[in-house]
Structures are given as structure tokens and as C-alpha cells.
Amino acid sequence: MLAYSVTNQDAEPFTYTITFTLVDDRGRAMSTHEETVASVGAGRTVRRTLEAVGYGGGGEPLGPEHVRIIDVKRVPSDEAPASAGSCPPSGLRLTADDGDAAMGLRVVGLHLENCGSRPYSLEGYPVLQLLDDELEPVDGIEILRGVGGIPMAGEGSGPPRPVTLRPGESAGATLAWRNTTQFGEAVTVPYVRVRAESGADPVVIAPNLDLGTTGELGVDPWKKETEEAATGSVRPQSS
């Protein structure tokens, strides 16, 4: 086991996601591991242990010298994605997947699960606000309705249609962008505040949008996940 600590120096509770990488004796990465430390209070320090650190070639447990912290993300606890198996008071669980990438195209899927007890209806696009490292708004990026304007992203899911989610059902939407860098300053957006629709409770995700100098992010409308499985969701294309 490896002990580590998280200190919240902000004035409100934050939830932290720490990404560790395990390296061999020559410093080569072997695997990565992600830990979430939820609701660390303002000015508080929380101590945890990294349980399954792994083993070296001789079967001995890896020590601290074989563990690196490669990324730390923090979001306000009241806007953090709900953990698996839990359901927010809204009855809607909004999360993002790990995404996909190829040939400069980046794709991240949003997932909206009705974990409540009543049907939920919506129509349209997720409402997005781009945020920097300090969780302040990022200006100058055009959010396109649909991913058809993003090269190599295909036609996307088409126009919005009404969606009704019964308890246990889910809908998906897609974020797509390119990391092309030409003239100008490259922009990276570490966080996105997402609402299922206008007025819905916000959830802050950390997709790390490496937008390059494109200045554009495409977003498809919500579709039932079963419909996406039947029609095919946006994925990077190699040609």
C-alpha cells in the first residue's frame, strides 16, 4: 500500500481525481490507475492509500519510487459527476466517457441516465460552458450545434428529436473537435460545465479539450443510447 494525501486550499469543498502511473526500474510506464477523493472540505487534508500498487519483475510489491502522479483534476463537489451506483437528487446521472482519438480528431461521449423513479423528457443539445484551470469561463471558442462541421467527424446524429427516458434508460450526446495547430495560440480547455438542458443542474467534467487553433467544438443532440447503438455514434475515422 502507498499513502498519499489531498489538501484542499480553496474556500469550498472539491472532489479530486488523481491519475497515477506505475513505472518499472528503468522508468518505463507499465500501467495507469485513477483514484477519486470526494468532497474534501475547504482547508482540509484527506489521507488515503493506493491499494493495489502492483508488483515488479521479481514479484516484490512496487514501492513509492515506482509511482508517479501524472494528472490531478478538481471540480466543485456539488457539481462533480455522481459515482457509479449513486443517483443525484435530480434523478439524472450525467457522466462522460474516456473518449477516442485518431488522425487529429477527438471524440468524447456524454451519457445521461435516468436513475430516478419518473420519466424524464428533453429535446435538444447539452448546454456547455468551457472552463480553464481555475474553473473560469473560456472565451473565443465557437460551440457548433452538430458535429458535421468538424472535419472527419462525419454527419453525426442529425437534428434534435424529443427524447423520453423511462427510469433506467439513458441518452447519449457527442463532443467532437480537432487538435489542429496552425497560426495563432493553441487552446486547451481542461473542464466543461454541462447541463442536460437549460436550467438543469450542472455537472463539471474534465475531458481536456486540446482544441489547437481551430476555435471550434461540435456537440450532437441527445439521443437514446439504444438509438445510438443502432445507428452508430461518432468515432474517429482513419480516412
Rank of each mutant, 00 (worst) to 15 (best):
Asp132Thr: 05
Ser77Pro: 03
Pro81Cys: 09
Val147His: 05
Pro76Tyr: 06
Lys73Ala: 13
Gly116Met: 09
Ala101Tyr: 15
Gly149Gln: 07
Gly58Thr: 08
Arg93Met: 03
Gly116His: 06
Met152Trp: 12
Leu110Asn: 12
Gly99Leu: 07
Asp133Asn: 14
Pro119Gly: 01
Asp133Pro: 00
Asp78Lys: 11
Ala84Glu: 13
Pro89Cys: 00
Gly124Pro: 04
His111Lys: 15
His111Gly: 11
Tyr55Val: 15
Arg106Phe: 13
Gly124Phe: 07
Leu62Asp: 12
Asp98Cys: 00
Gly109Ala: 06
His66Ala: 15
Ser77His: 06
Ser77Glu: 07
Arg74Thr: 09
Ser117Met: 01
Val127Thr: 13
Ser77Tyr: 03
Tyr125Ile: 08
Gly91Arg: 09
Asp97Val: 02
Pro89Tyr: 00
Val75Asn: 09
Arg68Met: 11
Gly57Val: 13
Asn114Trp: 06
Leu128His: 11
Val127Asp: 12
Val138Cys: 10
Ser117Phe: 01
Asn114His: 03
Gly104Asp: 03
Arg118Ile: 03
Arg68Asp: 14
Gly109Asn: 14
Ile141Ser: 06
Asp71Lys: 15
Val75Lys: 05
Ile143Gly: 08
Met152Val: 07
Gly59Leu: 12
Gly140Arg: 04
Ile150Met: 08
Leu105Gly: 07
Ala80Glu: 10
Cys115Gly: 05
Ile150Val: 15
Val108Tyr: 08
Glu60Met: 14
Pro81Ile: 00
Gly149Cys: 03
Glu142Gln: 12
Ile141Lys: 02
Gly99Val: 12
Leu105Tyr: 01
Ile150Ala: 09
Met103Gln: 13
Asp98Leu: 13
Arg118Gln: 15
Val72Lys: 07
Thr95Gln: 12
Leu110Trp: 10
Asp98Ile: 09
Pro89His: 01
Leu92His: 01
Leu130Tyr: 05
Val67Arg: 10
Thr95Met: 04
